[in-house]
Design a protein around this nucleic acid. Structure first.
Length: 283
DNA sequence: GCGTCCAGGTCTACC
DNA sequence: GGTAGACCTGGACGC
């Protein structure tokens, strides 16, 4: 089975541009990205890989068209980046981003899942982030026929108590935040999937996202990137230290200076700073 | 072994 | 609006 891909689309870069592919239930082996996800209410296994002008994919226990839609969502195949590449054309130092057709950042099947993962990136090492997500999937994910597990649903997480998040997930002080968020989604008080389609202005949307306990500036702006809005930098210690080294002679500086550096890129600045800082790791 | 530091921050209280 | 201190975990590091 195949999915047609745009001319300016790099499967490799879409998958590995940031660390999400290392978080369960994603797996990347020999160029094949696999995920176990809920499709049509059933845990289903989906695999996707690169071919010359298309993407190959296979799915087990799921409708072919819905699996195709899921892959398009994960890889952001329908998201237009032409304006981004055109903008970069006016900045010689950053033209390489367009030449490598960077832009799409891998995202999860649901915005809910991306929020949970983002909260689990805060104030800890990447190893601990992977551990917390692995624990969530292992303890609460639904089992597919092949023995893989989905990311837990809001309802599954909402049914737990704080002690579970502390003892089994090892989420520390984040536990109550994760539980409160899951319960707010499960009972409909918060509808994160709407963030993908809402017309409200970015500052207002950011305010709504920050209303979630455990989500501050970094996490909110990271979420904005994952729903396709790139006018926030999502500054964390990784981006700050990278900026100091690359653009400020290794010296610390106020965030305002970082904003000023990338402000010429307007609504694309969040993508530019990210690729600027991970350039060495991109093939 | 043990203690300390810190990592892909956020919240609250206080000024 | 700006800032200090507390907050969980676990790996790295020095002793």
């Amino acid at each position: 089975m195949h999915i047609k891909k745009p001319d300016s689309f790099s499967f490799q870069n879409a998958v590995t541009s940031h660390g999400w592919y290392q978080l369960m239930p994603f797996e990347l082996n020999d160029g094949v990205l696999s995920i176990c996800a809920m499709i049509d209410g059933k845990p289903s296994d989906v695999e996707v890989w690169d071919k010359s002008k298309t993407l190959g994919f296979r799915c087990v226990e799921s409708n072919k068209q819905q699996a195709r839609n899921l892959i398009r969502h994960l890889l952001r195949i329908d998201e237009p980046f032409e304006d981004f590449y055109q903008e970069l054309g006016e900045h010689s130092d950053y033209r390489w981003i367009a030449e490598k057709t960077l832009g799409p950042l891998l995202r999860s099947p649901t915005v809910f899942e991306d929020v949970v993962k983002t909260i689990c990136t805060t104030n800890c090492s990447w190893a601990l982030t992977k551990s917390m997500i692995r624990n969530l999937v292992t303890h609460l994910g639904e089992l597919s026929p092949s023995g893989k597990r989905t990311f837990p649903t809001p309802e599954a997480m909402a049914a737990c108590d704080e002690r579970f998040f502390s003892d089994s997930i090892r989420a520390g002080y984040r536990g109550p935040y994760l539980l409160e968020f899951a319960r707010s989604v499960a009972d409909g008080r918060v509808e994160p999937e709407d963030w993908l389609v809402t017309d409200i202005e970015t500052p207002e949307l950011k305010k709504s996202i920050k209303a979630i306990k455990g989500v501050g500036d970094y996490a909110a702006e990271n979420m904005l990137k994952l729903v396709g809005r790139y006018d926030g930098l999502a500054l964390d210690s990784f981006l700050r230290s990278g900026f100091y080294k690359k653009h400020n002679k290794g010296k610390e500086c106020p965030d305002k200076k970082i904003h000023k550096h990338y402000s010429p890129f307007g609504k694309w600045m969040g993508l530019v700073i990210w690729f600027d800082m991970v350039r060495k790791e991109i093939s």
